[in-house]
Write a protein that binds this DNA or RNA. Structure first.
Lengths: 207, 207
DNA sequence: ATCGTAATGAGACGATTGTCTCACGTCAAT
DNA sequence: ATTGACGTGAGACAATCGTCTCATTACGAT
């Protein structure tokens, strides 16, 4: 009976896997840092089964869905007519900022997990790599004005913005500087716009 | 016997504490992520004693000394006659950049440790969440020109620079962008100078 | 040198984490 | 309905982490 080997009972497996991820997402959203026990209980699944799907808690937490949709480039600039890169980049940052602080606990766990991975054993594959949501957003924000930048300047600007944009800057603001989200947003907005302006100036001068 | 209550046997205590931190530093430098057992053994101290000084391993690792002196403000600007804030800030970044990449492995562990701490137990005070080495450097770099900045602008600039300066930006460059140290340095140098310039302009306009 | 007390060492203890085994149930083809 | 294969549950197990107790060591004032 020619069975599709890859999916003999795939539905059942996909369902439990999805339930586990959803359960993890719920607990993380509630502000907890759940152990495998708690996630399994929340998913109404035995602990052993949970370990069958994810080798460790971190691997599960890292893949857990974020609260609300992560702002995608298409979403943010859907019906946008604005073409000024300074404004658009700031919009992108605002969207990411909101998402980052809404999912602070989970993003902390995810960052920690990625650091453990790189610092501990030799590269283990199978565990999802760090995802990069910001590059796309930055490119989309700068797209309409891309021709106004020198290639080299564009690269530098994009990289600098990536430093300001993500989870890591949130860590700096919260843990190192002890600054509240609102102030953090202002600082990032200011810096973001200043950098875009500087890059534009520089590119104009070298034209 | 009027004993100075705060220091009855303070020397001994300071010594053990220092030994523990030094031992942790040595193990981290060797690329390990030591447990309390290992640190205690390395310091030739019992595990119980180690726990008497640090409530958990993370608290110990976070305070561990880095390889070579962390560039202090006095050190970097010792015989410096330069007063241009743009140049001085860039010098500070260069010094920190070198230190960060030299201690990459250890700083990763320390960052991970600090993230674990903040995400797990309820807010415990007294234990530093994170040490802040960069604020002093930034202040020192900007000191000669401090009067040229509006207070509000100064705050924003200092915070933005803090985001660009530390371990976290190294993580972004390495793990997210996949950029080598040299290029990272160039990006940070460019962004740093652009921000200082922007802050100066802005302050001049509002004078 | 003696003595009280703080610092330490040794180890037991419970909680948690991830692994493993074995028995049970459940899906799907016959 | 029967059968075989696969997913699952229950629990034992070692390893690790942080806490706690109690005996011992050694500092420092007298």
């Amino acid at each position: 009976m020619a069975k599709p080997i890859e999916s003999r009972r795939a539905n059942q497996r996909r369902r439990t896997r999805k339930d586990l991820l959803a359960a993890a997402g719920r607990l993380l959203k509630a502000g907890k840092t759940p152990g495998m026990d708690e996630v399994a209980a929340e998913a109404m699944v035995s602990r052993a089964t949970a370990y069958r799907y994810f080798p460790r808690v971190e691997a599960l937490l890292v893949e857990a869905p974020l609260d609300g949709a992560v702002p995608g480039a298409e979403e943010v600039f859907k019906d946008e007519t604005e073409t000024d890169p300074e404004v658009r980049v700031d919009m992108a940052e605002a969207a990411l900022h909101e998402m980052v602080y809404r999912n602070e606990a989970q993003l902390r766990v995810m960052l920690a997990a990625s650091l453990e991975r790189t610092s501990k054993g030799p590269a283990e594959d199978g565990i999802p790599v760090r995802q990069n949501r910001r590059a796309g957003l930055i490119d989309a924000a700068l797209a309409p004005a891309r021709k106004r930048f020198t290639p080299a300047t564009y690269e530098r600007l994009a990289a600098a913005l990536a430093v300001l944009f993500g989870t890591e800057s949130m860590i700096v603001f919260s843990d190192v500087l002890g600054v509240d989200p609102k102030t953090a947003r202002k600082v990032k907005s200011w810096a973001t716009r200043a950098l875009v302006r500087a890059a534009l100036e520089e590119s104009k001068a070298r034209r």
